[in-house]
């Protein structure tokens, strides 16, 4: 019964999460260029989107940066969480606090200070500088999520692997990581999302060639966020959902014979 109630609640929350997305997709068919009031139905924006090179380029940049950021954040965050869990370092607690600082630091402070630093070490602005900045505030999210999962993890698990002759690294890779997978997945998802949406830090650490989508979108607010942006979001979301469902379908196809055997 409780499960049923939770199920209904989950549905309600999903409606809340997707309500604005529904509105956003509906407005992508709006013929009004300013896209504030509804005018009439059109598919024009989807057509125009295909030929709008600058927007597509910023989307590509956002995806490159978010993917790179997620990969590095997951590596640093997961190993960091594991090490802090496994070993008692002299300065563990100070380190833990330090890790959380980028999460709370106002974007402007981080953006300006990183730009000053990059200029001082003459690192040219581009993909690398944006990714460094993004990883700095994204990996703590992975780390915290993984740490929560590690708490109460049976230490016998790793010890058993070590007793069986595995090196610590092998034990980590073969025993710990699979066990942490759900937390790594949620941490990675958070990192990717944060990176996709970051505006101010990106502004200070990017060059024109690596400018990301949020910079373009915020700039457009001045002349009106035209429905092309909604169309872009709609295409992106629908493609992602289809890809996810498809890969899930493939996975099921793949596992079914094994189950039968």
């Amino acid at each position: 019964m409780l499960d049923g109630a939770l199920g209904i609640w989950t549905v309600v929350v999903f409606v809340f999460l997707y309500l604005p997305i529904g509105v956003l997709v509906a407005y992508s068919f709006n013929s009004s260029k300013l896209n504030i009031l509804w005018e009439s139905f059109t598919l024009d924006w989807y057509v125009q989107l295909w030929s709008n090179a600058p927007i597509l380029r910023t989307l590509k940049n956002s995806l490159i940066v978010a993917t790179g950021t997620t990969a590095v954040s997951v590596v640093i965050g997961t190993t960091g969480a594991w090490l802090l869990h496994r070993y008692r370092y002299k300065f563990s607690r100070s380190l833990q606090t330090l890790i959380c600082i980028p999460m709370m630091m106002p974007e402007i402070v981080m953006g300006i200070s990183l730009l000053i630093f990059f200029t001082a070490v003459s690192l040219p602005l581009g993909y690398v500088s944006v990714m460094i900045a993004h990883v700095t505030f994204c990996f703590p999210f992975v780390l915290v999520a993984v740490q929560a999962r590690l708490q109460g993890l049976d230490p016998a698990l790793e010890e058993a692997a070590l007793d069986l002759g595995a090196t610590p690294l092998k034990a980590f890779w073969l025993v710990i990581v699979p066990c942490l997978r759900p937390a790594i997945l949620s941490g990675g998802l958070m990192a990717f999302t944060l990176s996709m949406d970051e505006l101010i830090i990106s502004y200070f650490t990017t060059s024109p060639a690596s400018a990301t989508l949020p910079l373009k979108v915020f700039g457009m607010a001045k002349v009106g966020l035209n429905p092309m942006l909604n169309a872009l979001s709609a295409v992106f979301i629908v493609t992602t959902i289809i890809l996810v469902l498809f890969s899930e379908y493939l996975r099921r196809l793949g596992t079914r014979p094994a189950q039968a055997a």
Binding site: I21, L24, D197, I237, I241, V244
Partner: peptide, 16 residues
């Protein structure tokens, strides 16, 4: 599915 809505642009989402 929890996370995907947030892969749209913040501003577009807020205007929705």
């Amino acid at each position: 599915l929890v996370m995907i809505p947030f892969w749209t642009s913040f501003l577009i989402r807020t205007y929705a």
